[in-house]
Design a protein around this nucleic acid. Structure first.
Lengths: 136, 136
DNA sequence: CTACAATCTGTAGTCGCTACAGAAGCAAGC
DNA sequence: GCTTGCTTCTGTAGCGACTACAGATTGTAG
């Protein structure tokens, strides 16, 4: 049976993760140093799954520090680990919701001001004036 | 009549903008080099208003590149400038909305998974499993 | 044997700040 | 006058999460 381990290019293709990013993850310790054949990295199944985990966590907006913590917890199972995972995720969910609220506030102001700008009948540009530009 | 121009500390207090950030804005050309008394910066009214403009634009999520463009446009008035401002703002609004959609997708997945985790009756941690952790 | 693709290491750039270190200047109190 | 403390100055380096390159080296196909 042949070697199931894959090159960095193949890993990149399979996970949709940039090659440079894979090496970056290794450098900062998010991924463990993989096996080498000569100077070339060869990634085993466990590496591929681990990177998949990292990517999905990143897509959910977890920071790399949080990802590191989640990876740790995913190794040790048990109820307290699950509790820790839930705590981290709940905190992250709060942060996401706060960010959404921020962006919605921006959205409201932007949409309103653009609408006013479209309706015409102003001396200056309402957008610039909203930013305080009339006094520049 | 005394000098109305203010120190960087006073400007910081008035605008709520960090002193280091003010110097940073100057360095990258978002704010013009202010007058000096000796080696100390003295900010005139126009500078104060300009920084206010920058801060409000930043609060609306405009990048510093966009802020630079808006500042340029706020100097030259006229209809085409207003059109440009509206174009920049509309593009930015789209970006904000896209970001909100992203975050809401994250929020849904996170909330759902945390809910499932709370309901119990699973073999492993549902959060870890959602990330692909059961195969690690 | 030659050409090309993939990979390697190491370094520097991005954005929008923030945080120092170390020097210089000014005002008030003793 | 002298010290103490505050502000400001310049310059540089750090953050997070990548991304982009230069230049070397290796493997592979024709």
């Amino acid at each position: 049976m042949r070697d199931a381990r894959v090159s960095i290019g193949e890993l990149s293709r399979r996970t949709g993760c940039n090659i440079e990013t894979i090496r970056y993850y290794e450098r900062i310790g998010v991924l463990p140093p993989p096996d080498r054949v000569g100077r070339y990295r060869r990634f085993a199944d466990a590496d591929i799954r681990r990177l998949g985990f990292v990517r999905r966590a990143r897509e959910l907006g977890f920071t790399l520090d949080e990802v590191r913590a989640l990876l740790q917890l995913s190794q040790s199972d048990g109820r307290s680990a699950c509790d820790d995972v839930r705590r981290i995720s709940a905190a992250h969910l709060s942060a996401v919701r706060a960010r959404i609220a921020d962006l919605r506030a921006m959205e409201r102001v932007l949409a309103k001001t653009i609408r006013e700008c479209g309706s015409g009948g102003h001396s200056g540009c309402p957008l610039i004036e909203a930013l305080g530009g009339n006094s520049l």
